[in-house]
């Protein structure tokens, strides 16, 4: 076997071990309690039975998490530029930003339902609230973490403030921005799912994974719940992979985190 193939093998071996372990765990439980941890065939059956419903719900949750995520990224980019522009602005606004993150979603939920009603807009707002903070904190940090020598260069070049911000600080902040995006990408589907649970639309065909889980739970359909969890995870993986791809596109040519030695290791 070629060494290259050998190097690709470990993840697959691990996946096989994981599935075998799952199955073993199911069988290790006393028969009366096995329903709490469905076997792989039971899970497969759940996917077969609820597949279309799960897929539809996943679509709604995916759209909502993407919407909240994109909105947060956009607003965070703008807010960071503002925050990086002066210490005064930063000191004045920071408590409010923290507040935004600290507001418990469970309390915001009923208020949101009163304001905008249950459904996608509410879910997007909650997802935005959850993903905004790591984005704005990371990006602002990036905008402020510019080498003194580069600042001197721009001052020598008699750069205007906006030139310094857009031509120096913004590109230097890109790696930080993508770190924020990665964290937000993990939080967004969880946020959207939770939001759907709390403020999602319950009318037929428009609910997301949160409402789906709620229904499975009410009907005691344990394999269905597990299947929902798996779909939720998959959503997160897709979003994180997409962000990693974007980060690669933006950074691999110049940033040290993508240098040849890093890849060799």
């Amino acid at each position: 076997m070629s060494s290259r193939l050998l190097r690709r093998l470990p993840p697959f071996v691990l996946a096989a071990l994981f599935l075998a372990g799952w199955q073993a765990l199911h069988h290790s439980l006393p028969p009366g309690r096995r329903f709490l941890f469905p076997s792989l065939p039971q899970l497969g059956e759940a996917f077969q039975v609820h597949g279309p419903a799960l897929l539809g719900a996943a679509g709604h949750t995916a759209l909502a998490s993407l919407g909240g995520f994109a909105l947060a990224a956009l607003v965070a980019a703008g807010a960071s530029l503002l925050l990086a522009s002066s210490t005064l602005v930063r000191q004045a606004l920071y408590p409010y930003l923290m507040g935004l993150q600290m507001v418990p979603v469970i309390i915001v939920a009923p208020i949101l339902i009163l304001w905008v009603g249950p459904g996608a807009p509410s879910v997007i707002i909650v997802t935005f609230l959850i993903t905004f903070f790591p984005l704005v904190v990371n990006t602002t940090q990036g905008l402020l973490s510019v080498e003194q020598a580069h600042l001197d260069l721009f001052r020598m070049g008699r750069a205007a403030r906006w030139q310094e911000l857009l031509l120096l600080r913004a590109p230097a902040a890109l790696p930080y921005f993508f770190t924020g995006l990665r964290i937000a990408a993990i939080l967004a589907p969880i946020g959207a799912l939770t939001a759907d649970y709390l403020v999602g639309s319950t009318s037929g065909g428009r609910s997301g994974l949160g409402i789906t889980a709620l229904l499975f739970s009410a009907r005691n359909e344990i394999p269905g719940l597990y299947a929902t969890a798996v779909v939720g995870c998959a959503l997160g993986f897709v979003l994180v992979s997409a962000v990693s791809g974007l980060a690669w596109l933006a950074l691999h040519r110049w940033h040290d985190s993508y240098s040849a030695e890093q890849i060799e290791r």
């Binding site: 080498e147 020598a149 580069h150 001197d152 260069l153 120096l168 590109p171 230097a172 890109l174 110049w254």
Partner: peptide
């Protein structure tokens, strides 16, 4: 008037 710094101070993304 031009200044050459101790380090190259190139912008890595360009």
């Amino acid at each position: 008037l031009a200044y050459v710094f101790q380090d190259a101070t190139l912008l890595p993304w360009l």
